[in-house]
Every structure is written in C-alpha cells, then in structure tokens.
Design a protein around this nucleic acid. Sequence first.
DNA 1: CGTAGTCTTGAACTGCATCAACCAATGTGG
DNA 2: CCACATTGGTTGATGCAGTTCAAGACTACG
Lengths: 243, 243
Amino acid sequence: MSEAPFRIDALKVACSSCNLRELCLPVGLTSEQLSALDTMVSTRRSVKRGEALFHAGEPFGALYAVRTGFFKTIVSAADGREQVTGFQMAGELIGLDGIGTDQHTCDAVALEDSQVCMIPYNQLESLSREFTLLQHQFHKIMSREIVRDHGVMLLLGSMRAEERLAAFVLNLTQRLQARGFSASALVLRMTREEIGSYLGLKLETVSRTFSKFQDDGLLEVKQRDIRILDLGALQRLVSSVNC
Amino acid sequence: MSEAPFRIDALKVACSSCNLRELCLPVGLTSEQLSALDTMVSTRRSVKRGEALFHAGEPFGALYAVRTGFFKTIVSAADGREQVTGFQMAGELIGLDGIGTDQHTCDAVALEDSQVCMIPYNQLESLSREFTLLQHQFHKIMSREIVRDHGVMLLLGSMRAEERLAAFVLNLTQRLQARGFSASALVLRMTREEIGSYLGLKLETVSRTFSKFQDDGLLEVKQRDIRILDLGALQRLVSSVNC
DNA sequence: CGTAGTCTTGAACTGCATCAACCAATGTGG
DNA sequence: CCACATTGGTTGATGCAGTTCAAGACTACG
C-alpha cells in the first residue's frame, strides 16, 4: 500500500450506501435523513496499524466511526501507566470522551490497517437538532458506552481472572457475530498485553488462562486464533462464580 | 420528618433560582432559557436514606439531578455480585444509563435523606433541540461521565490499594470543595463496604488502608470523619507509584 | 536467515482476600 | 434509663490468586 497514515481519502463516503448503517450512527433514519448525513460525513481517513487516530490532549473536533479495521483506546496516568479502556470494531464510534472538555482524553490506536468516517462534531449537533431520530440515536450510543463502562467496572472490581477472560471472549464473539462473522471462531487483533491491560491482568496471566481454557476443552488457542469449543461452559463461568 | 419516601414535593422547583445551577444541567444558559427549563423540571422527589430512586430493569423515563443528599449507583451481575459504579452528590445527574435501552441498568440508592429534581427525558430532548447551549451542556455531561468511568477503569485495572483509596479521597474532596465545603475535612456518606465495592477492594482492606494513612500521618480517621493532614503525600501516592 | 516482537511456561513471591474475633456507636424495648 | 441487639469498623492470622522474574519457543517480517 502506498497510503500515508492519516490520508484523507478522496472517494465519496456515503452512509446511505454503507453496509454498516444498521450498526452505526444512522440506525433507523429515513432515506432523506440519510442523505443529509452523507453530506456531513464526507471524509474518510485511513489509519495504519500502530498509528494513532488521535492522542490525549489534542483538540477535539470530530467523532470517528470505524468503517474497517480495529482500534484500542487507552488512558494514561501521570506516571505513565496505561489502561486499555476499550476495543472498537466496525460500526462503533470513537472519540465521545472529547466532548466534555473539547480535548481528547485518551489515545485511539489502530490495531490493524483501518478506515474511519469522520463526523464533525458541531455538524452532528446541528443536524441532531433537526432530526429527532438522529439525536436520539446519538444519545443512545453515548448511554450504551456508559453502560458498557459500568460492566467493565463490575468485571475489574469483582471478577476473577478466568471470569474476566471468558467474559472478554464472549463479548468479542457477540460483537463479531452481529457483524456477520462466525460465532465460534475469532482472530484476536490485540496482544496478550493489551488484553491484560483491558482486563486488569498481566499478560502472563492472560496466557496462562488461555492455556487453562484449552486444557479444559473450552477453547482451542493457537496464538491469536481462537476457536470456541464449549460455549456453555464459558457462559457459566461468567454468570456464576461459586454456585 | 413525616415525609414518605418518594413523596413528590408540591413546592415549586426552579432551576433559575437554584444555587446549584452552575454545577448542574443549566450551566451557561440565558435567563430566558432557564425559565423554559423551570417548566420542564417541575417536580422534585424526596428519597429517604436506604431507599432506591430507581432499580435496574425499571422503565426509563427521566433523569434526576441531585439537589440535596448523596447517592450511590450499583450494577449487579447475574449471580448477585454487586459493584458500586459511582457516588453522586448535589448537582450531579443520575440515570444516564437508561437512555440506551429505555430501561435503567443500575440501582440508584440514597445514602442519606435526599431530594432530586426530575428531568423528563423526552422533554429534555425536545428542549435541547431548541437550545444549542442546553444540548451541548447535556452532551458534555454524558461525555464527562464516560471520561470519569475510564478513570475508574484505570484505577481498578492498575492501581494498588493505597493508590485507589488516596485517589478516592482526593476525588471526593475536590467535588466537595467545588460545592463550597472544606478542602481538608469531609464526612463519608458511605460504609467501608461501599467504598470497597467502588474501589475493587474488600472492606477490611479499606479499613486497614485508612488506618495505615492515619499511622503515616496522611489522614486523621474517626469512623466516617476524615481530616486530610498531608495533601501532598496523598497526591504523590496517586500520581506516582514507584518512582 | 536472523532479529525483534509475541507467546508460553516454570518457580518463587506478595498484596490482598478470607476467616475470625473483638470493639464502638446507635437504636430499641422493657 | 439501662440491658441488649444490630450495624459498622478495626485488627490479627493465614492462604491463595495473580504478579514478578526468568528462560525458552514460536512467528512474522525485513
């Protein structure tokens, strides 16, 4: 590929013809409203693996919808410690954290070569004053992010390593399944260290727990290729600790 | 007091004359916009200590702004484990989690006798289509909640017990200070167990860590009365682990 | 083909949980 | 107003889940 990171693609972007529109911001919009969205979401950006879409501290101006690829978001403490706060795949929005202070508060880094659609934020605000449905959908997306975060808090605050990893794998497969991928096999886009950071574990613990799941016949693990062998057992791990 | 829990107070509520308006939803609104808010936020509700403002699973219809008192929000896992996801004080909004699915996803429980202002959600949406500033302020509040949650993830995922508790105390005092209270003394509204749940620790660890802070001269701890003796040391604990 | 990044596995350590006893404060009923 | 119960908090002893340190294996990519 000859693309530079951050290249702004010339080709016309159109929510109205995007196969992700039922997973993304335009859910439920009329075709008239969709074409209004099309004029707003007019630029697409390519981000190479390892490159950042934005960094904490940079001025906030737009949200980004993942079109292809995979991202992580990380927050950093003053002393340099990092925490992965989420992984984003096609149809998911990145950058909501920036609205509150007009500055991004996390880094968003591509885990593989990716494309995002840029959604200029003040245009989104004015368009959502016109379209009730767009406004409501946007609010729902923010609310769901809050609910997701609360779920992660529950995970970090009160689950053991096996439960955390099982919950993680199940969450990934559910989201992949919603995008038409297999429910029983997946390829991890992130390292053990990134999984560990997200789950509040060290990479060795993640690795060991994967190995244990394999020994117990729950998963087949070959590096980043995961196959689910016993879905029920994984689900039981998540929803019932010691009973 | 002869109030029943959930009493809907007859007295007129008015954002325009509320001393919390610079901390709450109405930040930055013109007086004309404020009086429009007044008609929307027309009911106030009293919640007694230990009572829930709402429960997970109940239909979502309104947000609540804390007027007086103190709340916790908790999410529950299928197996009954609970996680405190936040503590809310005067001027803070409760219920944002319900927008995404039209159902509350957590319980909100008063930690002392409290009053909240009810903000009917569809009225908030329509009013924020009229008033750009209100719309933007609302978005900021949601975004800041997301950023706060990410901070808690960092805390839960990568801090040690002492750092967590120091961060917690500092956060509380900052918020209390913004409301005109002392920067160096506070009264905890929650039990050690609730603090522990929020911080991903057991109550004994919270208690022990308070005792250690007292032994080390950082805090004076008398049950729920806390006095900060060495602010700098607390801040150093939070922002630098081992350096 | 070699080097760097990633992953796995073992062995020893440790921070926090668990279990348990006790103490202090507050509330209740006789 | 006092005996008793209840709730919340402290502290000690012990155990263990997950970390840390370390070595080696696998994979990808120039």
